[in-house]
Amino acid sequence: MIRAVAILLVFQLGGEVAARGLGLPVPGPVIGLAAMFAALTLRPALRPMLEETATTILRHLSLLFVPAGVGVIAHLDTFGRQGPALVAALTVSTAASIVAGVYVFRAVARLTGADDE
């Protein structure tokens, strides 16, 4: 497990160095994700070494958002004044985005014959 965490951190660190060093607009962990993906494709032997830890972290992904979510208490005055407008905007936008995404995906899947369902 320690080895797996160390490998994940090395990829994140590499991503961070690349993002800052090259001035990329993409965050370090996302570059780390792409590099990890490339590494798994080139060396499938990495997979069993990391799989259990990666699965455990992803199963509890929700937990990792809790500290940022609690940040709402630092913005209670903004939410007191504009909370309903902000929540309405977020709800409409999230629903619209899901509907747009899912319909465009299905339409293009049918057109390109990627329909495996």
Binding site: L8, F11, V102, F105, V108, A109
Partner: peptide, 29 residues
């Protein structure tokens, strides 16, 4: 959150075959 983002490479890699077939629908969506 950082290591978890890197760990997302695993489910991606597992679905590699399906990803290739659905590249266009994904980009459009």
């Amino acid at each position: 959150l950082g290591p978890a983002t890197v760990a997302l490479a695993f489910p991606l890699h597992e679905n590699l075959g399906r990803l290739k077939r659905t590249a266009l629908p994904m980009l459009a969506a």
